[in-house]
């Protein structure tokens, strides 16, 4: 209960801050020096936040769709051949630093939102894929057997048995991806994507701690809210299959 109240309070604070950052200026004034502005006005905070979230949302949706599709394909009898390879690629791929992926996407995509989106998408594939694979392969053979015995076709088994059973684990993967993407997107500002990182970098360049704090705070609160939201979804999905 206290958790819910805290989350609601954090969300209200965030919305109030984004709607009218100027009214919080006195809060951030102590962190500035030489009468520097306490609130970033170059680009609206709201528009930076929305573009940040949009980028993350787009990348997460794309990587979830592709990763779950791939996981379904390699767990079908016709795709089993790819399973060992898929596991190796996933574990190796996750050791690639996200910043390096971002930097390497620049020569291909040029500067702007493009490379950030590609890096977030590629990096986001792995946690979802790994979890979807675990969810789809870790099901008890008895359940499969029962589904077959009921006369369900392979397609029905996938949609009515396997996917619902794997859903909580898949959602955990999506949560990991979303939180990682939210943080990595800030670095996207170094390649000229419009994200909250712009605020942090502006703060670093002008030694204005207030900007750095604001950027970190907004992304941090967003991450906590998304994390909690997904956990709630996971609980719901687990309750639906009788594991709540």
């Amino acid at each position: 209960m206290t958790g819910r109240v805290l989350m609601a309070a954090a969300m209200l604070f965030l919305l109030a801050f984004l709607a009218s950052p100027e009214s919080f200026a006195s809060l951030f004034k102590p962190f500035t020096r030489n009468n520097a502005p306490a609130i970033y006005t170059q680009t609206g905070l709201m528009s930076l936040t929305l573009s940040h979230l949009g980028l993350v949302l787009l990348a997460v949706i794309a990587s979830t769709l592709i990763a779950v599709t791939l996981a379904i394909l390699v767990t079908r009898p016709s795709g089993r051949e790819f399973l060992p390879l898929a596991r190796t690629v996933t574990s190796v791929g996750q050791t690639f630093p996200p910043v390096a992926v971002l930097a390497l996407a620049v020569p291909v995509m040029g500067f702007g939102a493009g490379p950030t989106l590609v890096a977030l998408f590629l990096y986001g594939l792995l946690p979802v894929f790994e979890n979807a694979l675990a969810g789809l392969t870790g099901q008890s053979p008895q359940v499969q057997e029962a589904a077959r015995g009921m006369g369900l076709t392979p397609r029905q088994r996938l949609w009515q048995v396997e996917l619902p059973l794997a859903l909580p684990v898949i959602l955990t993967g999506v949560r990991l991806t979303a939180v990682i993407s939210l943080g990595t997107a800030t670095i996207g500002s170094t390649v000229a994507a419009k994200t909250l990182g712009e605020l942090i970098i502006a703060g670093l360049l002008s030694s204005n701690t207030a900007f750095v704090l604001q950027g970190g705070m907004v992304v941090g609160i967003l991450a906590v809210l998304i994390y909690e939201g997904f956990q709630r979804l996971e609980q719901l999905a687990a309750a639906r299959i009788g594991q709540g």
Binding site: G183, I187, I200, S207, T209, V212, L213, G216, A223
Partner: peptide
Amino acid sequence: NILQTIPSLALFGIMIP
């Protein structure tokens, strides 16, 4: 956990001052 959610760029920046 909350520490972990602070974006790396911001955490690095906050350490400086």
